[in-house]
Design a protein around this nucleic acid. Sequence first.
DNA 1: CGCTGTTTTGAAGGATTTCAATCGATGTGG
DNA 2: CCACATCGATTGAAATCCTTCAAAACAGCG
Lengths: 232, 232
Amino acid sequence: MVFPSTTLAQLGRSALFAGMPPAEIAAIVAHSRELTFDQGACLFLEGEPATTIYLLLEGHVRLARLAPTGKQVIMHLFGPGEELAVIAALSKIPYPADAEAATTVRALAWPSAPMLDLLYSHPRLAVNALRVVTARYVTLQSRHQNLATRSVEQRIAAELLRLAQEEGSPNGRSLPLSAPLARQDIADLIGATLYTVSRICSAWEQAGIIQTHNRQIVIHDPAALRAIVDEL
Amino acid sequence: MVFPSTTLAQLGRSALFAGMPPAEIAAIVAHSRELTFDQGACLFLEGEPATTIYLLLEGHVRLARLAPTGKQVIMHLFGPGEELAVIAALSKIPYPADAEAATTVRALAWPSAPMLDLLYSHPRLAVNALRVVTARYVTLQSRHQNLATRSVEQRIAAELLRLAQEEGSPNGRSLPLSAPLARQDIADLIGATLYTVSRICSAWEQAGIIQTHNRQIVIHDPAALRAIVDEL
DNA sequence: CGCTGTTTTGAAGGATTTCAATCGATGTGG
DNA sequence: CCACATCGATTGAAATCCTTCAAAACAGCG
């Protein structure tokens, strides 16, 4: 297996391996395989033992839990550069949710066992992992608060702005989101129904605040969304 | 400062210090002070730099965020033996929520700075911290799913059962919760209003499922609550 | 015993869901 | 290249759950 330097560099830039000695990163890469998943493919299922860690190179992954009623709740939407399954694998617990490829996905995958040893020999890795989990916790906490206190409209606005912020590309006033988001995805993300989301989004589209085409969303008026979030 | 052996033993049993060499634990204890907070007192506020870590010895602490509308959302309810502020302190981020003493509280407190060094010299500590944060994440994830998919009635039932489970004392069919829970607290915990919670709880009291007296809750029929959660 | 804060209860209103049906777009095979 | 099938999006109307507002009942506690 060949490791293009770009891949190695990518690993070094990732939150999990930041500051790790290149030799160690190389050792980890040596254990990794590059995998491809078709849209809709499943990376892992809730309850499975967490034996694999992923680093997304390309594409998006939905981390979601399926309620007994059939309703899905998206816990996190992963984009390129993000680590998947870190929480479960490094804590030796089963995957707490399902992971499904939202688009075609290219990812680096490696067994978690060798990482667990590294966790003890390389404190920096453990501290990084702690940071990754913490960041995810804070994000979820914020979304939880939104779900408990804000209207559907406000939650959609807040979520779109959050996703836009992660992209970090203020492209001349119009922010395109790289993640493909169907109405149903938005609904699962904010805890609402497809129908309410559709009504709100099409109203926004009329108003020129956003524009959607085939699951691709472009935010034309971020200020309007922010105003909706801050409303009342 | 004197360190009764009970305190040292308590630290050793805590999730954060499990498996650490006693000498290290002693060193940590050496930096700690025992503090007391009156009911309603504030341990820290959202946004403050996280300079202190707490280990609850006695009493309960509400970790909550206050929304701009004035609505409170309880993120976690801490009981004796639980660590507070681990997430923020070890990741060097500001406290992400307010902490308020729900009862009179006795806690061990120590500055986070020395812990941060230990994090690098004692991988076991880092791994433990990772486990603590992970556990909290999984719990929040589960509550988030409940909020998104279940009715108020189901959420109250689920939350009471969760709290009962944490106590771990199946005391001859009737489970008393050690944490004092006012109607408002339950509401803040599950994301509902005081009024709806009151209606449901008093109905359950009529039915003999639970019993409440001055914020103390006793579950008489856990099976009935479980049935409500599993409903539909 | 009065005071303050919590709990209960009622009635009205509102936000979201649910159900049902239509529309549109995308992609496929004839 | 069109017709059809499929999947997602939209829209309407009714139902529901929950909140909101208001007021009374009921503690604990000085």
